[in-house]
């Protein structure tokens, strides 16, 4: 057997292991029966349609969307200036600041959720939604800073100086010269942040209350109660959504270099 074929087989097996399960859920969701089986009992779209009618899925989808969109925007509002300061200024304690901002990536999410529940929600009366919003913002912030930093580092700093010498204020130089040139980095940061936030589970575990659940948490609890193919259908839909987002992002931004 030639080494070319060995190589194809190895890649094929790995991809089957990584991606095959998705194909299976897509099919499992198409089942016409009432229980999860594979191969499915006949083919129907009823579970895919049912997903849209389950009230709790709609509510939790709305919450997850809200967190992913506004948490990421908040993270960018905090993160872009921070990334700019780190790449353009010689600020004191730069390393400490970087470590603090990067910490949320390293700290396991479940601890974050528990800590916020115990010290912000319970004693200070923060609503669960607010706590979730803050947690998601903090969680996305490191990605925002990292991605924006890397696109700032590819941009020469003397452009801003040139703009200032032509009469721009410092903020003007940032808006007119820097921002247009890091657009795709900011967009990539948004997408990465959105996906990270939307898929986030452990942080939200403790931070959910009656009526306040993110979609993945809702799916987990739905799974515990019911064994019908609607979660499979929903999983397949979410996977589709991710694939489309990533495909479009890759096509227009060369997204994978930012991941």
């Amino acid at each position: 057997m030639s080494s070319k074929w060995t190589s194809r087989i190895i890649i094929g097996i790995t991809l089957t292991f990584l991606i095959g399960p998705f194909l299976i859920i897509i099919l499992a969701g198409l089942s016409a029966g009432d229980f999860m089986t594979f191969p499915p009992d006949g083919i129907s779209l009823k579970w895919y349609l049912k997903v849209f009618t389950v009230e709790s899925f709609r509510a939790s989808f709305a919450l997850s969307m809200f967190l992913a969109v506004f948490g990421t925007i908040a993270a960018l509002i905090l993160g872009i200036p921070a990334a700019y300061a780190i790449s353009r200024y010689d600020i004191p304690y730069a390393e400490t600041i970087k470590t603090i901002v990067a910490a949320p990536i390293i700290v396991p999410g479940i601890i974050v959720g528990l800590a916020l529940l115990r010290y912000l929600v319970v004693p200070l009366g923060f609503t669960v939604t607010l706590a979730l919003f803050l947690a998601h913002t903090a969680l996305v912030l490191p990605y925002a800073v990292r991605v924006v930093s890397s696109s700032l580092n590819n941009l020469r700093g003397d452009m801003e100086e040139a703009a200032v010498l032509l009469g721009c204020s410092r903020i003007g130089a940032f808006m007119r010269v820097v921002l247009p040139n890091i657009q795709s980095g900011v967009l990539a940061a948004f997408i990465l942040g959105f996906v990270t936030s939307f898929n986030q589970v452990p942080v939200s575990l403790f931070l959910s209350g009656p009526g306040v659940r993110t979609l993945p948490i809702d799916m987990l609890s739905y799974m515990e109660m019911t064994y019908d193919p609607s979660v499979a259908a929903l999983s397949a839909l979410l996977a589709f959504l991710s694939v489309i987002i990533v495909f479009v992002a890759e096509k227009f931004l060369g997204f994978s270099r930012y991941v």
């Binding site: 399960p21 299976i24 898929n199 799916m219 499979a232 929903l234 999983s235 990533v246």
Partner: peptide, 14 residues
Amino acid sequence: MISPVARTYAWIVI
């Protein structure tokens, strides 16, 4: 990029 819940759920079927 895909939800870990979706990724893990597949294994229940399998």
